[in-house]
């Protein structure tokens, strides 16, 4: 039985997290816009003069005041994320089930996963230069989700009453999270390989280091997406009597899979490495966003679980 008060607490937490994401975005944006400060220039010259260090730019020490804004942005992102996860969990409590059974809930969960992957990736690499992209994405998407997709918690229709809902949809969200992070890295790769002069761009790792990172993250996304596709087929066989029927959502999940398969091949092909493969990554992520928004709302098909009035 849905509990109205849990849902309102959930909304409160989600709105708060949006506000904090927005502030984090501003902090990261100031970090991006900041001009090169003299101390940094001096240090860079020293590094250049010293030559043979094997330290890549990703591992540039973060001491000194020059990374303070990014630090503030990251701390705020973590805070916003905690609020966001709390809001998502409370939504699940309100509905009495997993919080990803309609468009609003799926947006809530998958954005939490996108940011979560960014936050935890910090244990692996310093990716704070992506902060402006991730927090911007989170603010805008959460805004769209709460304004356009919000519906009150309702019970599951029979077709969704399956443990596959837990697996299939959650894995899809995980895949989306990795692809989102990869898309940020690919965008920066494209910027890095062209423009220069902006201090923020010069501080970034090299284009090929960004490409490597994007590839490693996107490969994780591809593995989860493959699993999503197969789990979806198994579930479709149970619920609809066929494992594959070219339903609009199936078509787009397939299209995304094929585009990323092309991306992975491009990474291993002379003449396609670099800029071209980055564009493929971005086409793939654009297809994911299209699949989630336009296909969900406007296309007719069996995956009509947005919960939005027609």
């Amino acid at each position: 039985m849905p509990d109205v008060s849990w849902d309102s607490y959930s909304l409160l937490a989600v709105y708060s997290s949006m506000a904090v994401y927005a502030i984090a975005f501003i902090a990261f944006a100031f970090d991006v816009a900041r001009r090169r400060d003299p101390a940094e220039v001096r240090e860079r010259e020293l590094v250049a003069a010293g030559g043979g260090t094997t330290t890549t730019a990703t591992e540039t020490p973060t001491r000194g005041p020059r990374r303070n804004l990014a630090k503030v942005g990251f701390a705020l992102t973590v805070l916003a994320w905690v609020l966001h996860v709390a809001g998502t969990v409370m939504r699940g409590i309100a509905a009495g089930r997993v919080p990803w059974a309609n468009m609003y809930e799926f947006a809530l969960t998958s954005i939490a996963i996108i940011v979560g992957i960014f936050v935890f990736a910090q244990l692996w690499r310093d990716l704070r230069f992506l902060g402006v992209y991730i927090t911007g994405l989170a603010t805008v998407f959460l805004g769209v989700a709460t304004v356009n997709f919000y519906v009150s918690p309702t019970p599951l229709p029979p077709a969704l009453q399956s443990y596959w809902l837990v697996i299939h949809v959650f894995v899809a969200a995980l895949g989306t999270g990795f692809f989102a992070l990869g898309s940020g890295l690919s965008i920066l790769q494209l910027i890095r390989s062209r423009a220069s002069g902006l201090a923020y761009v010069d501080r970034l790792p090299g284009a090929s280091a960004l490409e490597d990172l994007s590839y490693r993250v996107s490969v994780m996304g591809f593995i989860f997406w493959t699993f999503t596709l197969i789990a979806g087929a198994v579930w479709a066989e149970h619920a609809w009597g066929r494992y594959w029927g070219w339903d609009t959502k199936e078509v787009w999940t397939f299209v995304i899979w094929v585009v990323y398969a092309g991306y992975i091949h491009a990474r291993a092909t002379r003449g396609w490495r670099g800029t071209r493969s980055a564009w493929l990554q971005l086409i793939g992520f654009a297809a994911i966003l299209f699949n989630f928004t336009i296909v969900n709302v406007y296309f007719k098909g069996l995956h009509t679980y947005s919960g939005l009035p027609e």
């Binding site: 094929v258 585009v259 398969a261 092309g262 091949h265 491009a266 291993a268 092909t269 002379r270 003449g271 396609w272 493929l280």
Partner: peptide, 9 residues
């Protein structure tokens, strides 16, 4: 590989 990519797309 190039053909494979084009065919995939």
């Amino acid at each position: 590989m190039r053909t494979a990519i084009v065919l995939l797309l």
